[in-house]
């Protein structure tokens, strides 16, 4: 049987270049490069592997501003069959609750869904809420922190990486899985596939298309209120060079500035 697979992806600021505006305390996005969330690339790869093995289609769904275009094209170039960007100014400022609701609403518009993949969490907010949220809104079973996925006769067999070992679970579809960062190696994009992806294009779905009340989405639909943010002050650091025979001096100095403490030997 052919599986209808959905992958939830998010475009995030490149975590290596994130700059916090010291005045507004918001992320300064004007100079940061936007990239596809790394764990979502792993989710897409897991979905593509499953499709290639079992057959079916992979549809990528993302919520974000128009510049998420590059992520949509990238997912198509890696091998997705269809890409939908859920985008509307009404969706702006959403916390994880309306984000999950909006993405779930978009997925519910698809004809049939057997498996939904999501990254374990996004690198910019690291909540890990949205994947499980979507499963709840859609009334679907879910498994989080999945490292590998197999399918057989209407069941997903997933391995979950837990603190004390690996858990193997078997669940009937439909099911939502969140995939661990670095669970696999995402396939490369090639020029040929990227040209095809650019020509194929992606769909943009707005609020009207989803038919949701505006007060359910975006900042109005968000129960989170951020009261205050403050930057973490960087500690002053210093470097000093000690030769091997000066280690006693090093120990003394560390002791004097309070970095080392004397403890009774037991």
């Amino acid at each position: 049987m052919a599986l209808e697979i959905v992958v939830m992806v998010k475009q995030v600021p490149d975590s290596q270049e994130v700059v916090i505006d010291p005045v507004t305390m918001n992320l300064n996005r004007s100079l940061t490069r936007n990239v596809t969330n790394k764990a979502d690339e792993n989710a897409l790869e897991a979905a593509l592997q499953l499709r290639d093995e079992v057959g079916g289609h992979v549809t990528v769904v993302s919520m974000g501003p128009p510049q998420a275009e590059s992520t949509m094209i990238e997912c198509l170039a890696r091998g997705a069959d269809r890409a939908i960007l859920v985008s509307d100014r009404f969706f702006g400022g959403a916390d994880t609750y309306p984000t999950g609701l909006t993405v779930a609403s978009a997925i519910s518009k698809l004809e049939k869904v057997d498996v939904i993949f999501a990254g374990e969490e996004s690198s910019d907010s690291s909540t890990g809420h949205v994947g499980p949220g979507v499963a709840e809104f859609l009334g679907m079973e879910q498994a989080t922190y999945v490292s590998s996925v197999k399918y057989a006769d209407g069941f997903i067999i997933a391995e979950r990486e837990l603190e004390d070992g690996t858990e193997v679970i078997k669940m009937p579809t439909p099911v939502l899985l969140t995939i661990l960062l670095n669970a696999n190696v995402p396939r490369r994009q090639t020029l040929k596939r990227k040209i095809a992806a650019t020509k194929q294009g992606y769909e943009v779905w707005n609020l009207e298309k989803l038919g949701m009340p505006p007060e359910w989405v975006g900042v109005r639909g968000s129960p989170t209120i951020v009261r205050k943010m403050r930057p973490i002050k960087e500690k002053e650091r210093a470097a000093k060079r000690f030769e091997i025979d000066q280690i006693p001096d090093l120990v003394r100095e560390l002791f004097e500035i309070g970095a080392l403490k004397l403890e009774e030997m037991q």
Binding site: S70, R188, Q189, T190, L191, K192, K194, I195, T198, K199
Partner: peptide, 24 residues
Amino acid sequence: TLVTGITVDSLARKENRIVGVVQD
């Protein structure tokens, strides 16, 4: 057609003419 994030490997030749690019 703008494609970013892709590095062209080499040029395609046909009888010493450049007839395109090669990537992966």
